[in-house]
Write a protein that binds this DNA or RNA. Structure first.
Lengths: 148, 148
DNA sequence: TAAATAGTTGACGTTAACGTTAATGTTAAA
DNA sequence: TTTAACATTAACGTTAACGTCAACTATTTA
């Protein structure tokens, strides 16, 4: 069990962000101490780490993440008896399928971008080669002393 | 050569966004007609498409993109004679190297996320299997007429 | 017991990335 | 030549995702 300051260190999120995520319903309200301080479980910290990563690295908005989190909770709350209707589950499966396609699309685009970066690097290296002679000339000039 | 309204259709960006990108120096100011209307070249439209994609798909901020664009321009402006110093080029190469690493990192994270989504889908499908009997029962119930 | 160190809830402030509206100019069609 | 459909700049408005500050409470440390 962790207090909010511990969680900031573990997740990289600020206290304000943690409270904000709770406020907008992105995460469920954690338990409280007798003195009304938030206490986060290991599980909750893990979830927050993933949220932070999905935001920073994958560039997801909090809105998008809310969609995803509510899906996640729906599946987790399959407390057997109070299950979802077959129709709802099919809907969830479709949503997940779309998300997966989206990710795959993004990965493809990322790789294309990477290719471009590599091409730019090649160009830079070519220029480097061309300038090399000039550069060596300068280094040589810098190395001698002009004592008039 | 395209007017601004054409460009919105080709890039998915709004007119406001196009002017804004120019305002903050993300793109170079395009030429103007005699009547002061912006005219974009094929090249510029291509660049704008990439910018839009990098923003939407890769989740880059305009600030990040500015860094990248200025790098790109530095390399493009290797007008041979007025070249960059070897030191500057090495710096550029390092920056590009870092960007490439970043992308690779993001791709790895994306794939991890995709795996999670797939696991969720599996869970959903399992629930689906379990509920199936119940569902068929319901369908059967729905299909009969209760005529008391 | 006093002080330092955490935690809490408002509530207003800030920044990025545009949206929207107004007032105005240009160009093509009727 | 007037109208319609474009374009322009300037300026204020908006939303997301927090930052920051104030006023207060709880807990731990000297």
């Amino acid at each position: 069990m962790y207090l909010i300051d511990d969680v900031t260190k573990m997740t990289g999120l600020t206290k304000r962000a943690l409270r904000y995520y709770e406020e907008i319903g992105l995460i469920l309200p954690p338990q409280r101490t007798k003195g009304n301080a938030r206490i986060y479980s290991e599980e909750e910290v893990k979830e927050l780490k993933k949220v932070a990563e999905a935001k920073e690295v994958l560039g997801f908005s909090l809105q998008e993440l809310q969609q995803f989190m509510s899906l996640k909770r729906m599946i987790e709350e399959r407390s057997e008896q109070q299950g979802l209707s077959a129709k709802e589950i099919t809907k969830i499966e479709n949503l997940l399928e779309n998300q997966i396609k989206m990710i795959e699309f993004k990965v493809v685009k990322m790789q294309a971008f990477k290719t471009e970066l590599k091409e730019m690097r090649e160009s830079a290296m070519e220029i480097h080669e061309k300038t090399k002679t000039k550069g060596e000339m300068k280094e040589w000039k810098d190395s001698i002393q002009i004592t008039d």
